[in-house]
Amino acid sequence: MLEVFFPELKKQAEEWVQHYGYTALFILSFTESVLQPVPPFPFITAAPLFKLDPYVAGLVALVGNVLGALVAYFLARYVGEGFVRKLLGEKRFLKGEALFNRYGFWAVLIGEPYKLVCWLSGIFGMPLWRFLLASLIARGVRIAFFVFWGDLLRRWVS
């Protein structure tokens, strides 16, 4: 689906990972938590094709995702509700507010897109430790799924 809306961005991300490996994966993971639409997950699964270890790729992606999430969380707190309302649009903002009012911690665990969850966590003042714990669990489980498939691919191509 990403190819339909952002074909050049997807192609550029593939070239970055091909040339810069883990560094590119870290940057993709970090920025995906803040704003950009290219997720790191396909690159974790395809890590062996980029001559990367899927376990290291998963760890790099997890660290990048969570650090980027912290940036989005603190940016949202800094720039304030008005800016985030404009950034997300009124409809998404109200939907996110209802989600956080109802589910709180669980909204971070199961909410997508992750960047939206990060911004809303900061705006609605979720305690930082709860946000980090939920992010580590949610991203860790999701990334582990892609590491599993990447490991299978590594075994198949070896």
Rank of each mutant, 00 (worst) to 15 (best):
V117R: 07
K95A: 15
R142V: 11
V157L: 15
L136G: 13
Y103N: 08
R92N: 13
G111R: 10
F105Y: 12
F5Q: 03
D53F: 14
S33M: 03
L136T: 01
G89F: 07
F5G: 12
F83N: 04
R155I: 07
N65R: 05
W156V: 10
R142T: 08
F93R: 04
F124P: 12
I27W: 06
I110R: 07
T45Y: 10
L109F: 05
A76H: 11
N101K: 13
A57V: 05
L28Q: 01
P54Q: 05
F26E: 09
E112T: 07
R142A: 03
F93K: 06
G58S: 03
F93G: 02
L9K: 00
V38W: 04
L25R: 00
W106Q: 00
F43W: 06
G96S: 02
L70N: 11
G104A: 02
F83E: 05
V108W: 07
G64M: 04
Y73D: 07
K86F: 09
P54A: 01
L9G: 03
E112Q: 13
N65L: 10
L35W: 14
V108N: 05
K11W: 14
G58P: 08
V117T: 15
G68V: 03
D53S: 15
A57G: 01
D151T: 14
L109E: 05
F43I: 04
V63M: 14
A61E: 06
I27V: 14
A72V: 09
V157C: 05
A24Q: 13
P40E: 02
F50Y: 15
A47D: 06
L88S: 06
E8C: 04
S158K: 11
A107K: 13
M126F: 15
F41Q: 12
F30Q: 07
Q18P: 00
P40T: 06
S158L: 11
Y55I: 12
R102D: 06
P48R: 00
Q36C: 05
W156P: 06
A61T: 11
E3V: 12
P54C: 01
P40R: 02
C118L: 11
